[in-house]
Design a protein around this nucleic acid. Structure first.
Lengths: 109, 109
DNA sequence: GTCCAGTACCTTGCATAACAAAGTACTTGG
DNA sequence: CCAAGTACTTTGTTATGCAAGGTACTGGAC
């Protein structure tokens, strides 16, 4: 309800969209997604958000995973979009554009 | 998770923002908000969403209410922004701009 | 050689909120 | 007189962000 709540609630919707978009560009591992998103003003997030999200995307068949060794730490689990994931992303893009424009119209004073 | 889920999740964040913006322009009663929002493509909503939201805004001190008779139906509960509500709206505007631009940058291919 | 920070994964529990559904009550037209 | 529209409210379900805590490996500082 307060200032923090707004960001939280909006992010609830857009984080999944952002993750799919990032995976559409190239594969990422989870920790990397957390770091890259958190570097962006307004999208600060944490492992407790991203890892469960990635599990859901996997269960839904939108991403596939592959373990790979790292030269400097624990192994990493890489995620990439499946064809179904690409299709879903397209759909999200349409919906995002719709909602974004609706909101911009409504809230402009 | 599916196509419907996306809209739901994004709306979870922006509906409150939209309602505050609409109340900033002029007072509205609840049913009216449901109808006006639902006319906008991408913001379809229902009474089960708006009435609890208005209660929360009232409890948080962001809106004030006033019952008024209608010439054509049951009495209406009108909502208007409090000074604190206006302040919160300003804050939401900043956050929305931040997140909107971040998402637009991220998801543009 | 031991300790601490960093990397990288995962899970549990809590709080929040959209929505469907059902309920109340008043008004108007057929 | 009763169905449909207006208008408000509440209950239960479900989803999800996040804090917090856990595991495990690596490398540098002391």
């Amino acid at each position: 309800m307060n200032a923090n709540g707004f960001g939280t609630q909006v992010k609830r919707g857009v984080i999944e969209f952002c993750v799919l978009s990032m995976l559409n560009r190239r594969e990422h591992y989870g920790f990397e997604l957390v770091q890259e998103l958190s570097r962006i003003d307004g999208l600060l997030t944490s492992e407790g958000t991203i890892y469960p999200l990635l599990s859901r995307l996997r269960r839904a068949g939108l991403v596939s995973t592959e373990w790979r060794e790292s030269t400097s730490g624990p192994p990493r689990k890489y995620y990439r979009l499946t064809p179904e994931g690409e299709h879903t992303l397209q759909d999200y893009r349409r919906q995002w554009t719709l909602i974004r424009d609706a909101v911009n119209t409504l809230v402009s004073d």
